[in-house]
Design a protein around this nucleic acid. Sequence first.
DNA 1: GCAATCAGGACTAACATGGTCCCATATGAC
DNA 2: GTCATATGGGACCATGTTAGTCCTGATTGC
Lengths: 156, 156
Amino acid sequence: MLRISRLTDYGTMILVHLAGRAGHVCSASDVAAGTHVALPTVQKILKFLARAGLVVSARGADGGYTLGRAPEAISAADILDALEGPVAITECSQSDSQCELESLCPVGSAWQRINKSIRVALDEITLADLRGPARDIPVAALTRGITRPLVRLDRG
Amino acid sequence: MLRISRLTDYGTMILVHLAGRAGHVCSASDVAAGTHVALPTVQKILKFLARAGLVVSARGADGGYTLGRAPEAISAADILDALEGPVAITECSQSDSQCELESLCPVGSAWQRINKSIRVALDEITLADLRGPARDIPVAALTRGITRPLVRLDRG
DNA sequence: GCAATCAGGACTAACATGGTCCCATATGAC
DNA sequence: GTCATATGGGACCATGTTAGTCCTGATTGC
């Protein structure tokens, strides 16, 4: 359920790698070596991240990539947007969709609202949180007020 | 991003349909007619829902399906589990995955924790909430404490 | 000029999904 | 008992998406 693509997963690793080398320009080869992701894949992902402004590129010899802004200013939602585009949780939550069932659909915009809530949560999580064995990820705050036992957490 | 499958979307519609006919046994044909989803697809989905216990089936002539338990006792996470299986947000969050990068991965279990938090949120949303033009979906409670402007909500 | 590096896009193989169909089994009416 | 009506389980295929690779062109520093 709710799977993110592998590229997004790799993209997170790459951004974390760059965050750990603040001030240095890393070539795609450097990043590939540091993350153990295949070089062509790293190149592809860095292009997308550059286009989204999450990394800044320098062309030419001794060129490479640096983080576009501070890790605290890059959210998980930013990474998803950069690598997966503005895809929504259901087809009919896309603005340009033409769901023929829309007028009949009893679910209404429920999934869309769920989608938005998840996005809010993902907006709260920054690259700084994703680094290393962080224990206090902000999402934890989102579960405040939940009284139901959390036993089922290990299902996923 | 974070897309749910179309079958899950349909499954929600089907469950809402059944919830609106509590006490009645609906055949797959009835459900197809009521939801405007193709009959073979409805049959397939109902089988999955029955296996998960979300609906109860009666075989034979005059058979059909009824909701397995009260709408308040069926969560969005239940629906996802029934129709998409225990798939996690990333491959390495699956228990049986063998991610060769796991020991090197600087992201650690961050995405997994995000996944779990989302699941908690989805556990809070029941079929009763998904019905009709519900305005007070419990997920709203999850955004308590968020101070950042919610302008970006409309991106998804 | 040359080597190193990014930019953009085309391309293919693998995988997941959506949708359909078939056959076995169970039930109720006649 | 027979028949019509249903579900149960699974096979099957067309389609779309994803992952990954490769090619060509542009830019920069030595």
